[in-house]
């Protein structure tokens, strides 16, 4: 079970969190014309990297904040966690 540092609450066990997928995906702006390809990329297409990955988790059974976690998908090492709108270094 992973040990994740919630930027709001501190170190917590994985079972307090739920996974939210790739954190680098950006939703197209409202009312903006987008091509089918752009929309598919937003809704469906994801890279599945082996190694460093910036991902979303929600501290569901804690502060309920969505956070960003920089994690190695192979080793499970967590390098850093960020608040939802924190600048990613």
């Amino acid at each position: 079970m992973l040990h994740i540092k919630c930027p709001h609450c501190g170190m917590r066990s994985q079972n307090e969190f739920s996974y939210g997928g790739d954190a680098t995906v950006k939703r197209p702006e409202l009312n903006k014309e987008v091509t089918d390809q752009e929309w598919d990329n937003f809704v469906y297409n994801r890279v599945s990297p082996r190694g460093k990955h910036l991902e979303l988790w929600q501290h569901l059974s804690g502060c309920r904040q969505w956070i960003k976690v920089e994690r190695d998908t192979a080793s499970h090492e967590i390098f850093k966690t960020y608040k939802a709108n924190e600048e990613i270094a």
């Binding site: 939703r27 929600q58 569901l60 969505w66 939802a84």
Partner: peptide, 13 residues
């Protein structure tokens, strides 16, 4: 609830 929180915290803060 999670869905609403997602949009408020991440998409339209």
């Amino acid at each position: 609830l999670s869905h609403l929180e997602y949009y408020l915290q991440l998409v339209w803060p």
